[in-house]
Design a protein around this nucleic acid. Sequence first.
DNA 1: AATACCACTATACTTAAGTATACTGATATA
DNA 2: TATATCAGTATACTTAAGTATAGTGGTATT
Lengths: 134, 134
Amino acid sequence: MKFFEKLENITKCPVSYVLALQDTLNAFHGKWKMPIIGTLLFGKKRFKEIEREVRKITPRMLSQELKDLEVNGIVTRTVYNTTPVTVEYELTPSGRELHLVMESMITWGLQHRQTNIMENLPALNMPKQRALEI
Amino acid sequence: MKFFEKLENITKCPVSYVLALQDTLNAFHGKWKMPIIGTLLFGKKRFKEIEREVRKITPRMLSQELKDLEVNGIVTRTVYNTTPVTVEYELTPSGRELHLVMESMITWGLQHRQTNIMENLPALNMPKQRALEI
DNA sequence: AATACCACTATACTTAAGTATACTGATATA
DNA sequence: TATATCAGTATACTTAAGTATAGTGGTATT
C-alpha cells in the first residue's frame, strides 16, 4: 500500500487517514503504553506481572493506562474469582497487530541511527519523560 | 522483516530495537511534530508557510519543534539572505522515510476502526492535546 | 499475632508540555 | 506616514502528564 505514491499531485491527505494516524498515535500515547503493549506482545499477563516487568511504573499509572488501552479496544481484561482475585490482561487481535507498526518503527529507527551515526546523533534530544525498557 | 516471528521463544527484545523504537517515538513526540512532518512530506516550506498550514500552532511551538526535528536529523534548515530573509525547511532523506512508518500507522488505524466500529469506538478516549489537522 | 499477597484506589504533589500576548529590526507596500 | 511581511524571541501563564506515598479488603503464610 503506497499512500503517498503521487505525493506531487496532492496537497492534503484524506480525513480518514488523519483519523487513522490519530488513533495509532493515541494507542502509544504517553510514557508507558509502548512498554505495556510491548510486554503483552509476549503473552497475556496479570497486573502484578506487568508491574514487575515494566520497571518503575507505579500501580496508579499502570491501572490508568490499562483502562485506556481497554476502552480503545487494544487489551481485554478478564477477572477470575480465585482467592485472591486474578486479573489477566491480553492484547486483542487488533492490539496484536500493533507489532507491525512497531516493526516499521524499529526499521526506521535502526536506519536512522545508521545514517546519522557519523554526524551528531549524540546530540539526539529526547523528551524528558520516556521509559521504554521493554 | 519479522522481528517478532518467534515470539513464543523470547521474553525480551534486543536493546537496539528499544533504542530504535525510542528514536521513532521521539521523532513524533508531542502535539505538533506529526502535522509538521506531514506537511513537509508534500515539499519543502518556509516558516510562515508551515505556520499557515499547521493550523493553530503558535510561532513559539513551531520554532521549538523545528529545532527539535533539526537536531534529530529529520529536517534541514536553509537560510537565504534575501530581504527579508527566507528560511526553508526540508525533510532529510531519513525524514522522508518516516512516511513508511506513517503508512503502517494509517493501515493499522483504518483496520482498527473497521474491526471496532460495531462495538464502542465512539468511546475512543483521546488525549486532550492532539492537533493533527494535516 | 504479624506480615505478605493480590489488584488496585485516593490524595497530594511535581514536572513537562503547550498557550497567550507582545515584541524585534529591516524592508516593502499602500 | 502607517501598516504589513519575514522569521522568529521573551515573558508569563495554564493545562496535561506523571510521581510519591499511603491505604483498601480478603485470604494465606510464618
